[in-house]
Design a protein around this nucleic acid. Structure first.
Lengths: 234, 234
DNA sequence: CCGATGGTTCGAGGAGCATCGAACAATGAC
DNA sequence: GTCATTGTTCGATGCTCCTCGAACCATCGG
């Protein structure tokens, strides 16, 4: 009821180092097999299996069986949002003065956050879209303005398909390391997908990094008018 | 690091029925004593003391000693936001078809959510303010527009004092029962405080309800142009 | 059909932690 | 000063649940 017993159930699932590692790994956006997740968490596959069962029962993750492999992924955007909130919250008290974010320059520059672009390029993209008035605020979520619709349509994204998704089209995601906001939601995911589709960047195999090709980054920055220069490391 | 060990610590604190009850009770917005909190959670004061110590160490709650009493309250808006997110998330899967929200009509109509107004009147207030373009969206949080500034200044709120608070002035809060949004943040808190200051309503003693006086509700609805009529129970 | 690999189920062991009884410190009322 | 109330600390108890060894299904490749 009002005592939030469900809240306890949700928190309990995350309040375990092993499951937290699994969920964090899945926040990389890829679907991973049970063995891969057990490895990522540093436990045997038996233990991993029980944890995945719990996460599955609670609809925290979704499963798809391909042959003898079982691929797990974050169930939906709501779960991703909860995890984001928790990470963002946890990042507050711990490092205060400490340098925020990962040390790996590639990760700082561009990485995936569940299914959308984070890191400096993600922040710059969102900032640029804001300046060009691509969004309207309707009281609950932000949505594409007519200008925004045109912008992503020109970029090669089917605005209609994006709108028809269940999840909100646009959502502001507070990155737990950058302390800046970037774009999540269906549009955020579509933008990242299109950037990769265009060959401007590739996703790191086992890391969360997004590796932009030199000319890809030039094209990306040019297309979206990103002038910011931070951490010019390559 | 990136494994979210802090996330586990935060989740662990909430992943206990006793602490969850305490935190839920504190989300009522009042500062409560250790004994009151132990009573609310249904445990002895010894056990309650250990839990409060943990919550205090983690900065989830803040404590103020008044004589031999020790008053605990939610530490800050960030903690409140995390709890809101968790409750909102938990409300999703459980009751799907089930009627949402508390059954008590008084609670449905108007109640406190940490420090701001929730329930139907809270939703109506936010909706009305939106229609009158009281907010601007700056990319990270919503803020008062010039029209909004005038509006709350006329209502008797010191806009400057509100702006000088550390926490964001305006924040959209998704109520876990109403499934609608209402206004949180410094402005949301100031609005509720002013409503009570004006004598339009009083806070329930041991409940979360906000009891509007008949003429107080008329004045409130009139002032903010709230036309909605739902649950005309009194 | 047979080995190899991915994944699950079962049982036992063990660690963590919530809980309360008891004793103690601190403050307020009279 | 004396007593009652508030709150904390300590120790013992017991439960939950994480973990892995072992055994067992399912699928793929030959």
């Amino acid at each position: 009821m009002t005592d939030g017993s469900n809240m306890v159930a949700a928190a309990t699932l995350i309040a375990d180092h092993t499951r937290a590692k699994m969920l964090t790994a899945l926040m990389g956006g890829r679907a991973l097999t049970a063995t891969e997740l057990a490895g990522a968490a540093g436990i045997t596959k038996q233990t991993g299996s029980t944890h995945l069962r719990k996460l599955l029962d609670a609809r925290f993750v979704a499963m798809e069986a391909h042959g003898r492999h079982r691929y797990f992924r974050i169930a939906d955007e709501e779960v991703a949002q909860l995890l984001e909130e928790l990470m963002s919250f946890s990042a507050r008290s711990s490092d205060r003065t400490y340098a925020t974010g990962p040390k790996d320059p590639a990760l700082r520059k561009a990485r995936v956050c569940y299914d959308h672009l984070a890191g400096e390029l993600g922040v710059l993209l969102y900032t640029s879209l804001l300046q060009r008035h691509a969004f309207d605020f309707d009281g609950a979520t932000i949505a594409l303005s007519p200008a925004g619709e045109r912008l992503i349509a020109d970029f090669g994204i089917d605005a209609h398909a994006v709108r028809s998704q269940k999840r909100p089209p646009c959502r502001v995601c507070m990155d737990w390391s950058e302390r800046r906001h970037h774009l999540a939601g269906a549009v955020g995911a579509a933008l990242l997908a299109r950037v990769i589709e265009r060959g401007w960047a590739v996703r790191g195999k086992s890391s969360r990094a997004i590796h932009f090709r030199p000319n890809g980054e030039r094209a990306f920055r040019g297309y979206f008018h990103l002038n910011g220069v931070l951490h010019e490391a390559v």
